[in-house]
Design a protein around this nucleic acid. Structure first.
Lengths: 193, 193
DNA sequence: ATAAAAATAAACCAATCGGTCTAATTCCGT
DNA sequence: ACGGAATTAGACCGATTGGTTTATTTTTAT
């Protein structure tokens, strides 16, 4: 049967709440309330708020790595078109979310990166795993001559993903996807062979 | 003679403290302490913490618009080289700052953009003014055939600046400028005619 | 000189912060 | 069935949060 609560569901609630409100703006009590768990359970699972945040980052990162991998595996388009569709889909998800959050890793990294080394390291680790997955698609595109070879696959993968992170600022302060679409068009144009 | 304190010095302290620690992580008391002013003076000048933050954003934005303008006016290089030097200088400033903060507008926009509309609007207003200044340099580069005409000057200016914002995430979680230099090289390469 | 206005100063407020503690309950291995 | 361990439950803690209040001082306008 197991006990009433488990770490995964608390991590999922934490992810949803923190991504919309940020780390420092969210209190433990808010997470307890939304997850429907008492404080004792929380501190039974997690050492501290910071430890909790670290596990939220890792949980989200790993889930996303799995999703990314399967998305790219299932794509029947060419590598460059796959990348365009992929980032187009991310933009669409952000629109459906009313531009509320962007990416947890990016938001947490920017808000807490220089304040808590362990959160920075956790964010960087997860981010790097995503880049590795994306870089594999880029490399295939380079091999078939669809993507420029002026830069390495890894550099281009990071260029793509960090470029999108940059657009999240504009997205949030304008509550619009307008520039994100422009960014995608420009970036695909720049990296094509 | 005037009174003992003035808004400008409080705004400057607020800028320094918030850029390093974020908005929600900083309390009024911390700002009072660092600025050496009593609480009564703070609430005499500012309606609330949110109102204070809005004025910090505007203060920083306007100071930066002035600095940007004079930097570009005084540059004796060609437009594209001026842009490269400019972003190279920004990277250097971040290194000298031990990668502590990136850009206040970007950090605040990402942390609070979807929580407080007035802060989002203030950030967007200041950002747009910077883009206008940068776009003038881009346009000159386009006119002399140094920068691509595939996209408008304004689009390229935003592409540059938001691209740099994207690198701030990587900078903070790795405490390094390594990717920022790569990003600059790639971007200049992409936008050149 | 004087009165109104602005700024200074800090005590004070309810609410919330992250975290601790003790007790009761539930689960699991034997 | 039973004992130990894990989990649940929430009252409680000191510190801090953003903000208010009241009194005093300083500046400015008349």
């Amino acid at each position: 049967m197991g006990y009433k609560h488990n770490k995964e569901e608390i991590l999922e609630v934490g992810y949803q709440v923190i991504r919309k409100n940020g780390y420092h703006h969210v209190g433990i009590n808010q997470i307890l309330k939304e997850a429907g768990i008492p404080k004792g359970s929380f501190y039974n699972f997690f050492e501290s708020k910071e430890d909790f945040a670290k596990q939220v980052i890792t949980h989200y990162g790993q889930n996303n790595t799995i999703w990314l991998t399967s998305y790219f595996n299932e794509s029947k388009e060419t590598p460059l078109k796959t990348l365009r569709s992929f980032y187009g889909l991310l933009i669409q998800y952000n629109e459906e979310d009313d531009y509320a959050s962007g990416c947890l890793i990016n938001s947490m990294g920017n808000e807490t990166g220089r304040l808590y080394d362990d959160l920075a390291d956790a964010s960087n680790t997860q981010f790097s795993e995503w880049i590795d997955v994306i870089a594999q698609v880029v490399q295939k595109g380079q091999e078939i001559g669809e993507i420029t070879k002026k830069f390495t696959a890894s550099e281009i993968a990071e260029y793509l993903h960090l470029g999108m992170y940059g657009t999240f600022f504009k997205m949030k302060v304008t509550r619009s996807r307008a520039y994100m679409d422009t960014w995608l068009e420009m970036t695909i144009n720049f990296i094509k062979a």
